[in-house]
Design a protein around this nucleic acid. Sequence first.
RNA 1: GCCGCGUUCGUCUAGGGGUCUAGGACGCCGGCCUUUCACGCCGGUAACACGGGUUCAAAUCCCGUACGCGGUACCA
Length: 481
Amino acid sequence: MAPRVRFAPSPTGYLHIGGLRTALFCYLFARSQGGTFVLRIEDTDRSRLVEDAEADIVASLRWAGLVVDEGPASGPGYRQSERTALYQDHVQRLLAKGHAYYAFDTPEALAAMRQDGDAYGPATRGRMLNAFTLSESEVTARIANREPHVVRLLVPEKGRIEFEDLIKGHVAMDAAGLDDQVLLKSDGFPTYHLANVVDDHHMRITHVIRGEEWLPSVPKHMLLYRAFGWEPPVMAHLPLILSPSGGKLSKRSATTLGIPVSVRDYRALEYEPEALVNFLALLGWHPSSEQEVFSMAELTEQFSLDRVVPSPARFDLSKLRWSNQQHLRLLGTAQVAARAADQVAKAFGPVAHTYVASVVAAVGHRLVVRSDLCTEYAYFFRDPALYDPRGIKRRWKADAAVLMRAYANRLETLGAFDEAQLESALRTLAKERGVGAGRIIHPARLAVSGTTAGPSLFVLLAALGREACVRRLRRAAAVLG
RNA sequence: GCCGCGUUCGUCUAGGGGUCUAGGACGCCGGCCUUUCACGCCGGUAACACGGGUUCAAAUCCCGUACGCGGUACCA
């Protein structure tokens, strides 16, 4: 049977990088098995709802190249807020069969109970305000009176709950350790646990693939499946992604370690989606081969859940950067230039596409992230404002200004402004002046780019064009003397 | 606190009783190439958490400890 897998985020914020990893594994598994990838929006917490979160989730998935087969775009029923009648109905079934019960405790009463270190369960149930301590008529009266109430799961006092997780293996927990989880909140919305189980069943989800933070709630879900008389789906709990220091990937780690948390930030930073996907896939999964660079097609072809590791992985920015560099190469000049166009225009004003392409070609394998084009390689788009002091010290000798002017003069009358001509003109000049070529090359680079690093001088000059080269060489001669 | 999951180089990981004096990748260091910086190539650094078992043999299996992470909400 072809699997059906869902990615079920809560629209309480922008899509988290860990969320994308979860979505990716869901997607890869579905695709690798010829299955269906479903997007379900779990918007049952009305107080934490963020208005544009769902749009961000959808946009982020699309950007990353994860194609949703079924989701809010396919029609109604993929947002939990649209399915409240279904949950109400199922709660009634649980109530009728004695697997759930009404409770009327106030937040204060619950807080007091927890103060004593207790959980809502067999031990405390009897002293709280619920269907066990209230008469049937009083319960009905309170409900008719529209008093705030919830419905709780009746957890059996004893028994062991065991299940097989595709990634974690055999997991076992005592029912006694569970509390009587709220299933239906006083606002009429279901909690995650109820909605999740009901939806996974009705959406015919075959594999629940999600973050490890859900592992401890699986026993509650198993109880629900059992109560409904349903066959539970296969479980697969993904290890979490940690910050490089081992903690949670939070806004704090974002600012102190430069690791963005939201997918949209990676997009804004101009990482390639292919690179991020590749990097994320290798965070917790790897093939049996030693391949490190993958396209989405290769990932879907090779992915399997049994090669997902059980332990958490730390985020490593330098590896992401390496991945980005690899994918930039794979993309090729034209593609990279096309993707870079908007940001370049934003930074420097209108620039011809062919020029952006020639810059990308000139920079070549040096490009790690597209945004470097607007920072490290800004000199391709505007004259350098200053010259690297260390470069001046090392490369700008007493004869530099004279040589720069002389080379500028040659460039003005050069026939074809290409690498070969540029180079032979320079070498001829050097020979005439009785200096080594480096005596011109280094200061010329500094004059033209402001730095001592970068593409071959002749590639650089050819890309820049005659006018800019002449202007920059003369200006540097004037400024640096 | 209680419950659950985890633990191989700095990081991601291979390995799942003998093939391991533990392999690959990122990073880092050195060399070659070279007009610079990169790229590329070559080389180097660096790990089985600890303690007990089981076994002829354990990184691999079992138990314990330590540590890490997660959960313990009318949040997901």
